[in-house]
Design a protein around this nucleic acid. Sequence first.
DNA 1: TGACAATATGTCGAATCTGACATATACTCC
DNA 2: GGAGTATATGTCAGATTCGACATATTGTCA
Lengths: 121, 121
Amino acid sequence: MKDSKRQKLHAAGWKVGSTADFLGLSREEESLIDMKLALANKLKARRQQRKLTQLEIAKRIGSSQSRIAKMEVADKSVSLDLLVRSLLSLGVTRQDIAGAIGAPVAKKSNRSAPKRHLVAR
Amino acid sequence: MKDSKRQKLHAAGWKVGSTADFLGLSREEESLIDMKLALANKLKARRQQRKLTQLEIAKRIGSSQSRIAKMEVADKSVSLDLLVRSLLSLGVTRQDIAGAIGAPVAKKSNRSAPKRHLVAR
DNA sequence: TGACAATATGTCGAATCTGACATATACTCC
DNA sequence: GGAGTATATGTCAGATTCGACATATTGTCA
């Protein structure tokens, strides 16, 4: 399964492997999820770029680490408003936000997988 | 006072003339309001283009006339989520939405004022 | 391996947003 | 003017989202 699809399912509140998978996701629902994912990815990218921790971002924005974590995966419980407000707080411009929203599913740059220890198991 | 400014104050939940006027509206808050106004205006434009009433739109997207009215002026009680979902329901594309969000304050086309009856009073 | 930091997930009371309704105001035609 | 339609505004109970906290999982380094 492609990563972007997995992301979408997750954001929609499904466990991957659910029998329902994509059924029942209307075009509009899917679009909204795509937008949120785009913003979520942008938020994460921005934070990592700055080499900040979720906790640091949380304080700066006046939120909590757990909520930042949920934002970054576009959890069902996070609104567009919160995502946008957070991005603005981090200095992302409206134009940048618009760019993310309009762009096709920003495939979560996953080149050459994390590759943790590189130790035989 | 310019129309766009009046709109913004209204959306922020202020009565025009309030002594506070713009004070206390941070750059981020203002940006968010601008985005909502842009979407609100787009929603209204779209509806009028189609020559539909607020009531008709409401039924189509499963809401109420009063909420549509509030959406169209970006009332404090309407979320970005609701605005975006509504626009998507009306067939507006993500790209269009992005366009509205990114664009500079879409000054509420007010060319040659309504001019109702054109009757001497 | 163990210890420590970062991130993820679940839950909860408080805050915000929602559709619905009542009602007020504005517009259009006669 | 009045009647009819459209839009605006106020309110409220139910739904959703919020920050916060506890706790689980993952990642990193020695």
